[in-house]
Simulated scan of single mutants.
Amino acid sequence: MSSKGSDRMAGKHVTHERSDEEHAAKMAKKKAARDKIMAKKTGEKGLVIVHTGAGKGKSSSGFGMILRCIAHGMPCAVVQFIKGAWDTGERRLLTENFGDLCQFHAMGEGFTWETQDRARDIAAARAGWDKAKELIRDPRIRMVLLDEINIALRYEYLDIDEVVAFLRDEKPEMTHVVLTGRNASDKLIEAADLVTEMTLVKHPFRSGIKAQAGVEF
């Protein structure tokens, strides 16, 4: 290799080393800043958590949090407001394997266009909400997932003011409540501690693909 070629290779080596050193210094600075922030975050409280939006993943995220609770040995519960008639993978997994830690109450009878009976839908939603209040009031239960309750609220099967007031006034201090479903009420979003909106970018349903086991249920 010529002397010029050697010089170029040496220059690349020095540049690479300098880049590694700069990266390490940058990460050390970022870690120090992050540690300083985290040192101030010492509080704990039961959270009101909302998963909403047109994209997929709202219920899946909620069930993921339920599984975390189970992994930590924390008693938890699920109330399904709409999909109660569905034989879902989550329902099978939780009832067949973790019934000692997770109560599962399937209260809904399907989407409103399936039942075509508003009075029946309202009765099912009210029964689900009554069960939800009972579970939330129990201080032994650390997390309650109210799956698809936002749909029941959107169709006014339940009174949003009543739900928000209950979460504000009667939820035990350390109990987490997760509420899922698209079109979350502005009042619920305002009352929540954590809100995530799932954005729809692309969905196979629009290409003629039906709901499939392991993906949708």
Rank of each mutant, 00 (worst) to 15 (best):
K133P: 01
K45D: 06
H51N: 15
K131R: 14
D87E: 15
K26Y: 12
F63W: 06
I141F: 08
I49S: 05
A119K: 14
E96D: 14
D121Y: 07
C102G: 08
L94M: 12
C76S: 12
W129S: 05
F104K: 01
P75F: 12
V48M: 15
A132E: 07
G46M: 10
A85F: 13
R120I: 04
A125D: 10
F111H: 12
S61R: 06
T42P: 03
A85I: 07
R118Y: 15
D138F: 04
K133V: 02
T88W: 10
K133D: 02
Q103E: 12
V78W: 04
A124Q: 13
I66C: 06
R126Y: 02
E90T: 10
R91P: 05
R34N: 14
V50I: 12
M74C: 09
W113T: 13
S61Q: 00
I37H: 11
A127N: 06
D87T: 14
E134L: 05
G84V: 01
A71W: 04
M74R: 10
I122S: 01
C76E: 10
A33I: 08
F81H: 09
A125V: 14
Q116I: 06
E114N: 13
I70T: 09
A85G: 05
I66Y: 09
N97Y: 11
L101T: 07
F63N: 00
T112L: 05
N97D: 01
K45V: 08
K31M: 13
S59C: 03
K131T: 15
A125T: 05
N97F: 12
S60G: 03
G108D: 03
I49T: 13
K131S: 01
G53I: 01
A32Q: 14
I82V: 15
G99D: 03
R91N: 02
R137T: 10
E90R: 08
F104P: 05
E109I: 06
A25I: 13
R91K: 14
G89Q: 11
V48N: 02
R34S: 07
G57F: 03
S59H: 05
R91F: 07
G108H: 04
M65F: 03
I66A: 01
D117E: 07
A39C: 06
A85M: 11
L47V: 01
G62N: 02
V50F: 11
M27V: 10
D35Y: 07
K58H: 03
A106M: 09
I70N: 04
T88G: 12
Q80T: 10
S61W: 00
C69R: 09
T52N: 01
R68E: 09
L135D: 02
T52R: 00
K30G: 00
A39H: 09
E109A: 11
A54Q: 10
A39T: 11
I82M: 13
Q103K: 10
D35K: 14
E96V: 03
G62H: 00
D117R: 13
K29Y: 03
I141L: 08
K83D: 11
T112I: 13
W113E: 10
A123C: 03
H105E: 12
